[in-house]
Design a protein around this nucleic acid. Structure first.
Lengths: 191, 191
DNA sequence: AATTAAATACCAACTGGTTAGTACATCGAA
DNA sequence: TTCGATGTACTAACCAGTTGGTATTTAATT
């Protein structure tokens, strides 16, 4: 693996475990057996490294969301399920990334944060549009404001980054199914 | 107001805005026009101050949850609504507190973190028990695992700390109603 | 009421330690 | 010999916590 990727990978691990500010450049290079000269050859600053991590993460999510949404053969319900599953499955592959994405965003500078926030909003709006589409096509009931519903679903999914254990007894696929069942059908006994 | 309370209040504000590590004791005392000696007269360490903030926050939540749950006259559905409303209403009064509670917990030491994590788990288990009760009494349908449902509901609520704007167009009462409607009845059109 | 002892509230200066980032040296391969 | 890649040594800034005080308030005693 290239040194730049090694640095990125190890940084994600350390930022996730200890936090951005609590991880020094020295920690990162020491654990790779190199020196700071190497780090600053590949990254112009610690902040830039964090921005790289954020960009890779959100761009990957957006791209996979696009794939799901552009599949014409699927119903809105199925698409919601696919998106929820994707978000939760993501933990297994990119456990630390997501934590960093939510926890360390404030260490970006204004300009960088703005870019990331805009991309996050894009993801959110795509989901909101899907829900609105489902409402207009009669798959989902009207009466509930799509924006709040969207935030509710995203909250459920995103929060799982704080508790979901990939080695736990409930597999990600199952969690996604339960969440979608819950959101679609509710937990109350229907009269 | 007593100096100790002033320090706590201002610290919450600064920790919320800038983060725990990014706020120095000097920042706190400067913005109050006192000196570090004053700070260390009231708090034994920066970490202890953070622990104070965490304890006050979770103890308050637990106490209010207890009040809701112990009301015999209410149905499980109503109790769920009350808890969700309480969590979301909390943002208006304690906006920054909650952010600190979720974001800065890792700056506590092991022993402190353990205490807080246990209290968080208590809150979670109380909610889980309520859902199980609702299932056994026929208010909620069975088939969904109560623990995952609990985490879903908590996720929805807790995530709102990251976006809810007390001055926004949707009032907290309304958000709580939408979330509970969503969780109880689902968003799908029932066949 | 006057005096004194003790507790409270605060301050200024300092210490020991850490960290991001820089300047420049070195080394090896093409 | 050039240059991409890495190492060494350093700096300037920052910060948590300590120490040794002082001023003020409170409480007890005569």
């Amino acid at each position: 693996m290239k040194m730049k990727d090694k640095i990125t990978e190890k940084s994600i691990e350390l930022f996730g475990e200890k936090g951005f500010n609590e991880t020094s450049i020295q920690d990162i290079v020491d654990s790779l057996g190199v020196t700071k000269g190497t780090f600053y050859y590949y990254f112009e600053s610690k902040q830039q490294l964090l921005m790289d991590i954020h960009l890779t993460f959100i761009d990957d999510l957006l791209s996979r969301q696009k794939d799901i949404l552009s599949d014409q053969s699927k119903s809105c319900k199925t698409k919601i399920f696919d998106i929820v599953r994707m978000l939760i499955k993501n933990i297994e592959k990119h456990g630390w990334d997501a934590l960093i994405f939510f926890r360390e965003i404030r260490h970006l500078n204004e300009e960088q944060m703005d870019k990331i926030v805009k991309k996050r909003a894009l993801f959110q709006h795509h989901l909101e549009d899907l829900i609105k589409l489902g409402m207009s096509q009669g798959e989902f009931r009207g009466g509930l404001p799509a924006d709040i519903v969207t935030l509710g679903i995203l909250g459920m999914c995103n929060w799982s980054y704080f508790w979901f254990d990939p080695k736990g007894r409930v597999p990600d696929e199952k969690v996604a199914m339960i969440y979608v069942d819950m959101v679609l059908n509710g937990i109350a006994v229907q009269r």
